[in-house]
Write a protein that binds this DNA or RNA. Sequence first.
DNA 1: TCCGGTTTTGGTCTTGCAGGCTAAAACTGG
DNA 2: CCAGTTTTAGCCTGCAAGACCAAAACCGGA
Lengths: 245, 245
Amino acid sequence: MNAHDTTVEGAAALRDPRPAPAGAAHEVLAVVFQIRQERLSVLLWRRARPPFEGRWSLPGGRLGADEGLDDSIRRQLAQKVDVRDLTHLEQLETRGDPCRHPQGRILATAYLGLVPADIDPLVPEDTRWHPAADLPPMGFDHAAIVHSGRRRLRAKLSYTNVGFALAPPEFTMSELSRYYRAALGHDVAATNLRRVLLRRGQIEETGRFVPSGRSGGRPAALFRFRARRLEITDAFAVLRPPSGG
Amino acid sequence: MNAHDTTVEGAAALRDPRPAPAGAAHEVLAVVFQIRQERLSVLLWRRARPPFEGRWSLPGGRLGADEGLDDSIRRQLAQKVDVRDLTHLEQLETRGDPCRHPQGRILATAYLGLVPADIDPLVPEDTRWHPAADLPPMGFDHAAIVHSGRRRLRAKLSYTNVGFALAPPEFTMSELSRYYRAALGHDVAATNLRRVLLRRGQIEETGRFVPSGRSGGRPAALFRFRARRLEITDAFAVLRPPSGG
DNA sequence: TCCGGTTTTGGTCTTGCAGGCTAAAACTGG
DNA sequence: CCAGTTTTAGCCTGCAAGACCAAAACCGGA
């Protein structure tokens, strides 16, 4: 699940310590996902200048001199989307391969951001949503970072309530199952999804119904997520403490 | 589970972009765990000089000028333990709070490392194993990083085979249950652990038995982990793809 | 040799969750 | 009023985890 797992199998390179560096540049990047037209989409930005001119890259930029990582990614993203639309943001991974950036040593800390499906945030001219399953030609190692983000999102849909960040404030079960299908990449039966999320206490009925006449069928109940911040489904801690204690 | 989750609730600070920094220093740190005397222990290093003189801190150091993050943490750790004893190493999180280091802006990427329980690696004079549940006074934000590591390890014991990195090459089930108890912080019934790990295909019998006369009871069978690198238990992907596909 | 103590092992039983399936409910439009 | 569509509710199965218990296998001492 964690993108950057490494195992010490082949003995590591153990050269002598090198002189401490003057300091490497650091950038923050964000993989911002939104379900658009039944597809998991990622916000990308088209580079107007070398390196990788004309290719697409993740939004982000250099870390400010006196700025926290979380603050920085929010500031950078504010130039692309309304940050009030960002319903979730978490750190994903840090990449530090010396060759990852042609202009020299630049470390990158990547974040995973989510925008709910019902809105269409205004984005700048050079910025577009692309299907995460069909990425355009991308610069740097950004395609790999997008894949890390997809893996993380898929995993967390299983054992957390991240769905709240993908879905609008109110939704029908068939809508929600379409969001899950888009994010997971396979069908999700609305009837099972409903039972699972209700039992876990993640969602609840609002008591209201979708305006009648919309679909030609039985009017669907509107649901909402109980919490709007990340919670872990404790049922997924196997090897749990014994019940009698 | 992921240590650095953040949610955009209160609108983020959205100041104007600042001038790009010349470059911030970067360090790598490692939370190295080993089960010692029935307790989860972490390798710490006693600082001989300010800042935080006399306090304990995580092993690590400055990132080399032309060095990858993984390479760097292995190089730094080689000064403390034999890296061949490191059975697992994975990236944990990156911290970039401007105030985290009194000497100025230093980012830190932390790793989680594991050493199997049967060995007693030679460590330098200033380096000691401390119980992770009872940390000595620590400098910087290192205590918080150790807690992140504990959370990560506990979670991964549930849905991966990380146990291989905590246990010696061969072990009895009661030994293994004690390792799990130390890492998880609660009792783990050996009989259930055996069935769970066997069914998941994580462990297998070696066919050999512990030398008789050791315990006064029935001789215990020796087990081993089938794989010696991280694998995820797929049973934990809920909302899995429909069976007929 | 037998017996109590100890530890491991194998089995049963219960519980809870996930997911497939189907019938009923509730609406629309003709 | 009926056919078509969509949602809802219930039933059933399968599987994994954990509690519990009895049998197995060893030790040491009487």
